[in-house]
């Protein structure tokens, strides 16, 4: 079958899609967007979290056909998405907060993950970023318990989550300072 949907603001089309393929497979293997990760492919780990019409979902549990005509945001489009939400262009890495990256557009939550040491192997990171960004969108000043609740569907095996907590707190604090 042929599937059309919007990914990160751009219309996309995939041909010869087998009906059993997930949105995750089409993103990764047909559209060249492997940022959403395939850690469990059974909806338990959250590493493939994307926004589907704004709602965070596990892309592995969405049949590709279900995305027909809808809007998908992946980690690859997160900086632009967050930038549009804040009304100004996204910040650039390499500024005051970062030693890494050169002239790459990052969403505040992406920058905070780098700065706080929330990234180790990084395989959980894309899903966590999409989920954390969605949290900060609806709750700009989350309490720790709110952060834990919002991210409880995203497994991380490396960090023990402490630096992830730090990163979300940092992103919220920077957001409230307007930086």
């Amino acid at each position: 079958m042929r599937v059309h949907f919007t990914v990160n603001g751009r219309p996309q089309e995939a041909d010869d899609v087998w009906e059993g393929e997930s949105l995750l497979y089409v993103l990764r293997e047909r559209l060249g967007l492997p940022g959403s990760k395939n850690a469990c492919e059974q909806g338990e780990c959250g590493s493939c979290t994307v926004r589907l019409d704004g709602v965070p979902v596990c892309a592995c549990l969405v049949a590709a056909g279900q995305a027909e005509g809808r809007e998908v945001v992946t980690v690859e489009g997160l900086a632009e998405y967050a930038g549009q939400r804040s009304g100004d262009g996204p910040p650039r890495a390499g500024g005051t907060h970062s030693q890494a990256g050169e002239d790459t557009r990052l969403a505040p939550v992406q920058q905070a993950f780098v700065d706080a040491g929330a990234v180790q192997c990084g395989f959980c990171t894309p899903g966590l970023l999409v989920a954390a960004d969605e949290l900060l969108e609806r709750n700009p000043m989350p309490a720790d318990a709110d952060i834990r609740e919002a991210l409880s569907g995203n497994l991380c095996r490396c960090t023990g989550y402490e630096k992830i907590m730090d990163a979300v707190r940092l992103a919220a604090a920077r957001q409230s300072e307007g930086t």
Binding site: G35, E76, L78, A79, S98, L106, V114, V119, G122, T125
Partner: peptide, 8 residues
């Protein structure tokens, strides 16, 4: 770090 947060 930057590559890992952008999905690249």
């Amino acid at each position: 770090g930057t590559l890992k947060v952008t999905g690249e």
